[in-house]
Design a binder for these strands. Structure first.
Length: 435
RNA sequence: GUGGCUAUGGUGUAGCGGUAGCACACGAGCUUGUGGAGCUCUUUGUCUGGGUUCAACUCCCAGUAGUCACCCCA
């Protein structure tokens, strides 16, 4: 480095992460488990660029979000460009663009990286990866059931038991119905109350009641009964009889029942569940860790039947959810469910004397052709140190090549975890390390 | 974007207005073809920039980053 040059910082950019091999292994494990489950349900992978025209988000989210919460800049051709902050507009754009050529229903998933320009905190970074799953083209409530059961299967695949998480369910139709028809609030007031309900868990009961009363007015008692109902049955019976057969109620009832039929019983109706986006039209849900130390939602999603309208297309019914990698990893760490790491390299070849190097390279090449990952040690260090290196790097098998192996063509294949050593001919090595 | 707290070897942590310790990790050795333990030795540090002071890692200010809350929530 020449004098006068400032040393470059080795820190990653604010709010983003480097993935060293050990972290990459965790990331890969999470992604692989996500993929395995959703592909079992027949979902197909798609992807798209991180760059989108800024108006894609303006159309739905408004100026404020674009200017303050996203990475948006002007390119050399004077185009406004945004680093995608979420995947749903992108997938809606893709579906709308090729709508006539696609055969519905579409079961699609992607694991995009998403960007937001915000103050970073634990679990909320400026770049994160998110599993996005969507099913387009089916109105039936069975779609909600499928998508929610898929979220549950993902957590089970990671080794969580049903007592460690719960599905919270609500329906935008119920929310709107309560705000507009039951409480008869103005647009402005129902918006204010929706925001208040969203924040209920973060404030004291007194504080919440006081603020709610100020908005709701005369019907505060009814509101309190509704908002404090501990389960779906109580909630329904708090409603005036003619209102109990409302569409949203019936839908939610059906979703809960059908999930139960599939053996998913850790489902709870939660009238305070709102979710931020405006585009939801029916069922909304989140999956929560039941551990009180980690009260963030792991999955969130819902039905959005109208979104394609922004592209001038006729509506397509759709249900989807997202799951972030950061929260997922925190959750698995909390329950100690991250698997012990192992190298992708299967066999490490220690070289005892330099004259055996060529022979060892030939052996490695033969094994690679047989599909085995092999690494060689050219350090010239003592055998013990070479083995120690393999052990530290979690390579499961080691063999040492020296004069006697060159002469005999027999190899001792050592499994480091158990210490067991097997003697093998070259042709038998694959069988041993693949066991 | 606003406010609070924090910043010491690679990691985790002590400490003091006057020569920065410890543990683990890393490297070398005890051990000439078999690792994980133990022992010995070595390398590595006060986030950046200003200010106060005879003297700053320590006190003050700013920046940067992390973290928490607000905001917002994909």
């Amino acid at each position: 480095m020449s004098e006068g040059t400032k040393k470059l910082s080795t820190d990653a950019y604010k709010g983003v992460r480097d993935f060293y091999p050990s972290e990459m292994a965790i990331q890969n494990y999470i992604f692989a488990t996500w993929k395995k489950v959703v592909e079992k349900f027949g979902y197909q992978e798609y992807t798209a660029s991180v760059l989108e025209p800024a108006e894609l988000y303006r159309a739905k989210s408004g100026e404020e979000l674009i200017n303050e919460q996203t990475y948006t800049f002007t390119d050399r051709g004077e185009r406004e460009v945004t680093l995608r902050p979420e995947m749903t507009p992108t997938v809606a754009r893709m579906v709308a663009s090729k709508k006539r050529g696609l055969s519905f229903p579409l079961r699609w998933y992607s694991i995009p990286n998403l960007f937001r320009y915000e103050q970073p905190q634990r679990g909320r970074l400026r770049e994160h990866w998110q599993l996005n799953v969507d099913l387009f083209g089916v109105k039936s409530l069975q779609v909600e059931v499928e998508v929610i059961s898929m979220a549950v299967e993902i957590l089970r695949a990671f080794g969580l038991t049903d007592t460690q998480f719960e599905v919270r369910l609500n329906n935008r139709k119920i929310v709107n119905f309560i705000l507009n028809d039951v409480l008869e609030l103005s647009t402005e007031n129902s918006h204010a109350l929706a925001k208040l309900i969203d924040r209920k868990a973060k404030m004291s009961v007194e504080d919440f009641n006081k603020k709610a009363e100020a908005i709701v007015g005369l019907k505060s008692d009814l509101f309190k009964t509704l908002i404090n109902s501990q389960n779906f049955e109580n909630f329904i019976s708090a409603l005036p009889v003619p209102l109990r057969a409302h569409e949203g109620i019936v839908e939610t009832q059906s979703v809960i029942e059908n999930l139960e039929k599939l053996g998913i019983t850790n489902v709870r109706f939660d009238q305070t569940l709102m979710r931020g986006f405006d585009y939801y039209t029916g069922t909304i849900f989140e999956v929560f860790d039941t551990n009180p130390d980690n009260r963030r939602s792991v999955f969130g999603g819902g039905r959005y039947d109208d979104l394609l309208a922004i592209f001038g297309q006729e509506k397509v019914p759709a249900v989807g959810f997202g799951a972030g990698d950061v929260v997922m990893k925190d959750l698995l760490e909390t329950y100690n469910l991250l698997p012990s790491q192992q190298s992708n390299t299967k066999l490490y070849i220690a070289i005892a004397e330099e004259s055996a190097t060529g022979f060892a390279q030939d052996l490695a090449q033969t094994l690679r052709e047989a599909g085995i990952s092999v690494a060689l040690d050219y350090s010239g260090k003592k055998i013990g140190d070479q083995i120690k290196y393999a052990d530290k790097n979690k390579i499961p098998f080691v063999t040492v090549i020296g004069a006697s192996e060159v002469a005999s063509g027999q190899f001792k294949i050592k499994h480091l975890e158990t210490g067991v050593e097997a003697t093998a001919l070259e042709s038998e090595i694959a069988k041993i390390v693949n066991r």
